[in-house]
Design a binder for these strands. Structure first.
Lengths: 143, 143
DNA sequence: TATTGTTATACTCTATAACTATA
DNA sequence: TATAGTTATAGAGTATAACAATA
């Protein structure tokens, strides 16, 4: 028997994740995007082959076609050929897309309401713990 | 200028949430459910009016009709009338649904791989910090 | 009049399978 | 043969609007 309850801490982590997800959805809605569109745009700091975007989003390649269509229709991304491999189409954020990307990124990284309850010392401690936890986990899309 | 960077810590929290979400999706797939179906079943520890479930899932009431249909088709939940208000239909997990709910809950609360990197003392610290953070956030579905 | 659940409609996300053009 | 992107198809989640039954 350990002194900390894995049951509780896993539940807490899940609740924190839920809250973060919920906040992210509201943020996307404010920018009139779906969460997947926002994650795609956030990933497009540099042009990306469509199949690499699919890998980052952990979805089938075929989905990226429609996703790119919708982002393109909004003028946020553009398809461009890859000179090195003519099979490849790269997605690049347009100037409008880059501007939105930066706004989204800034809003995403504002101090979240959840953290407002912690003092400076606690924030440092949480940061250090999360660094370890995140380093041990699987790769993620944003950052 | 604060000594901790809100930008970084918000990003870490987001990454941890992403990883947790990803893990939850894999878990749901193992039980042949979608994440929303799993969240609904987890919420049905006790019977719930359909509109209350909609509120917990933060979606429109009209969506719960189809969601309930699919869960009912799988024999996991049943619709039952509310004696107190004949407009209300309550959803109740069947025995099969309760059994699956418990399995899902147990799997969800197993020590996640992310936490394996932390020692006992760090786990305690993380637990205390998350308690504060979660208590300050909006209500969530599971727990 | 207001609320609960349903239906109709439309859009997005998702996977599988088959197709094309390149490699 | 294998890979990148597309298309067709199908199921699921989501919102809006209109409706019947009940409060």
């Amino acid at each position: 028997m350990r002194s900390t309850d894995p049951h509780e801490i896993a539940g807490l982590l899940f609740a924190a994740a839920e809250a973060t997800r919920s906040r992210f959805e509201e943020l996307c809605a404010r920018f009139e995007m779906t969460p997947v569109q926002a994650r795609a745009l956030l990933a497009l700091e540099r042009p990306l082959a469509m199949r690499d975007l699919a890998a980052l989003l952990r979805c089938d390649q075929s989905n990226v076609t429609g996703l790119a269509d919708r982002l393109e229709r909004q003028g946020l991304v553009a398809r461009e050929p890859d000179p090195a491999d003519r099979r490849v189409t790269r997605l690049a954020a347009t100037r409008k897309g880059q501007a939105l990307r930066r706004k989204l990124d800034a809003a995403l990284h504002e101090t979240s309401p959840f953290l407002a309850s912690l003092g400076d010392r606690e924030l440092r401690a949480l940061r250090d713990l999360l660094r370890k936890v995140v380093a041990a986990g699987p790769p993620t899309v944003s950052r």
